[in-house]
Design a protein around this nucleic acid. Structure first.
Lengths: 179, 179
DNA sequence: ACTCCTTATGCATATAGTTGCATAATAGTA
DNA sequence: TACTATTATGCAACTATATGCATAAGGAGT
C-alpha cells in the first residue's frame, strides 16, 4: 500500500531507473524499507499507467538499455497528499518473540542460538551505521547540514537506536533464559 | 508465511476458537504480531483442511456457537520443524522514515506533528507495559518464574526496549529538525 | 422499542508481495 | 572456452493480506 509512495519519493528526489531503485532497497534505504525487484518493476508499470510517472527509454552501448522514470505533476500532487495523511498503525511482526512462546517444543539451547544469531546480525548492522556516521558526519559538519542531510542523519539515528535496543534485549534475554 | 505457525503456536498452548485468537492479536500479543480477523478464520480453515488442526463444534445457549480448534500430532510436528529453521531476514518498513526523505514536499511543522503523535502512541504503549510489569512481576516473583512466564517476561521486555528507542529517537529527531 | 456493543463466524473481491523462471549484453576469471 | 558476476528488464503463477459486506443472538443503555 505504501510502496507506491516510497517509489514516488525516490523518483521525486531524482529521475531513476528500476534498477537504481532496487539498489536503494538493497543498500541505502534497505534498513527502513524493503521490496523485491519484481515488486518494483510491477509498481513502476502501474505508476506509469496511472500517469504518476513518465518513462524515457535510454539506450546504452556498453550495458543493456534502461528506462528512466520521472515524476509528473500529478504524481507529485498525489505524493504530497499522502505525506499529509495520518500515519497508519505499525504492524509488528517478530518471529523470535513468537518462537519464545513455544516453550515446550523448542529447547532453550536452540532458542539461545537463534537469539545470538539475531544479535550478531544487529551488531554488524550497528557497526556499519556507526562507521558511516563517523566518516560522513564530523561534529563540525553536523553544524551546517542541509535540510535533506539533516533528515538522512535522523534516519540513520533510528537505525542505530533500534539496533542497540535489539542487542540489549538479546543480552538480557540470554541471561534470563540461562538463569 | 508465518501466520500459520503463529496460530499453531497459540493453539498448541491451549485449544482455542478463532475469536479467541483474534482477541490475542488485538491485545496480548498485538505488539509482536498482527493479523486481521478474516485472515485468522481463513488460515484456520486451511489448517483444518491440511490436518494440522481438528475442529469441534461447541454449541452455546447464551452466545453464538463456536468452533474449538485443537492441534494434531501432524500440526505439532510441523510447528516443531519450523521452530528449528533459521530465522528469515527482518523486513523493515518505516513510513515515518520514508516521509523524512521528502524534504521539499512536507513542511517541517507537519513532519514534527507526525513524529510527536508517534511518540505519544509509543509512550502510551510503554506506560501499559510498565504497568503490567510492575503489577505482575515483583522482584520476589521474578526469582521463581515458570519457563513460560520467563519467556513472556522477556517478550514484554522487548516491547519496552523498542518503545523506549522510538521515544528517544523522536525526541532527538524533533531537536535536530527544529534547530 | 430502538440502538449499539460484544460474541461468533464467514464470503467475495481486490491488492500486495513472493517465487520461479526467462532474456540478453558485457566483462572478468579459471 | 566455459563459468560467473553485473547490469537491466520482465512474465506468470501463486500466496498473503486487506477491504467491504453479511449474518445472528444476547445484553446494556436510553
Amino acid at each position: 500500500m505504501s510502496l507506491k509512495y516510497v517509489i514516488l519519493t525516490l523518483i521525486n528526489q531524482a529521475p531513476s531507473t528500476g534498477y537504481e531503485i532496487n539498489k536503494s532497497f538493497e543498500k541505502k534505504i534497505g534498513y527502513f524499507w524493503h521490496a523485491s525487484h519484481q515488486q518494483v518493476y510491477q509498481e513502476l508499470a502501474k505508476l506509469k499507467k496511472t500517469e504518476m510517472l513518465t518513462c524515457e527509454h535510454a539506450p546504452q552501448t556498453d550495458k543493456p538499455d534502461k528506462k528512466v522514470y520521472s515524476i509528473t505533476v500529478k504524481g507529485r500532487d498525489e505524493l504530497k497528499k499522502w505525506l499529509h495523511q495520518p500515519l497508519p498503525d505499525k504492524k509488528y511482526k517478530d518471529i523470535l518473540l513468537v518462537r519464545l512462546l513455544s516453550a515446550d517444543l523448542l529447547p532453550i539451547d536452540t532458542l539461545c542460538e537463534q537469539i545470538k544469531e539475531t544479535a550478531e546480525f544487529e551488531q554488524r548492522r550497528l557497526g556499519e551505521f556507526l562507521h558511516i556516521q563517523k566518516n560522513c558526519y564530523s561534529d563540525e559538519q553536523k553544524k551546517h547540514l542541509s535540510d535533506l542531510d539533516k533528515r538522512l542523519f535522523i534516519n540513520m539515528k533510528k537505525g542505530i537506536l533500534l539496533a542497540e535496543a535489539e542487542i540489549t534485549w538479546a543480552k538480557e534475554a540470554l541471561e534470563t533464559l540461562q538463569s
